[in-house]
Amino acid sequence: MWAFIHKLGSPKWFYTISARLLPWFWAAAALLIAVGSIWGLAFAPADYQQGNSFRIIYVHVPAAFLAQSIFVAMAVSGLIFLVWKIKIADMAAAMMAPLGAAMTFIALFSGAVWGVPTWGTWWMWDARLTSMLILLFLYVGVIALRGAFSSRDSASRAASVLAMVGVINIPIIKYSVDWWYTLHQPATFSVTSRPAMPMEMWMPLLIMVLGFYCFFIALTLTRTRSEILRRESTKRWVRELAGEGG
């Protein structure tokens, strides 16, 4: 177990192994997203209440899922980095943060666009949108904290601690916002909590969600690989690699 963890933590080993996995994830992401969006946008039946505008769900929901998952992944990477001092975990966490923030933004933006036909306004203090907005602030905080340190080692540790504090808080924030929302606006139509969706509607959604996850993994791997090269540029194996390539 220990040997395995440390082997996984070796940048060189990670670089080699991820090169083999990477094409599969990219291919899966492209395939799933293509199938999901064509199915969802062109073939899935229109919603009896919302018409075609409900199709935003195929972007909104996967982005929202991913936004939350990435924060958890970031905190777990932070924990691995703090406990086992595995630098790859920190590099991955650093690369995930902007992606997570982008996904949160996409979820918020698609939610706002969806709000126009549904509520007749760009913004409603809907429980989910509010939680998403707070999540965006949490992401911005982690990114800003990492950028504020002059020493990268300290930056990595501080960002890891903050991500862990955030991940403990996310469920608390989520439940308190839900509670706040029901108190102030009871029984309002909520966009995503819906009665059972027919199979033809949620199958493409499932495919899209899977596609987004593959995309996330592929992009994180790619970005982590270039981060490895950047940080380890003085190491011999990177120089040899560069020598071979160029």
């Binding site: 905080g141 504020a148 924030i173 916002v177």
Partner: peptide, 18 residues
């Protein structure tokens, strides 16, 4: 660190505020 501090802390304050 002052402004950054607010940025980090305010989102975490929301449950208490609610």
């Amino acid at each position: 660190g002052g402004v950054l501090l607010s940025l980090l802390v305010l989102p975490l304050y929301i449950p208490v505020l609610i």
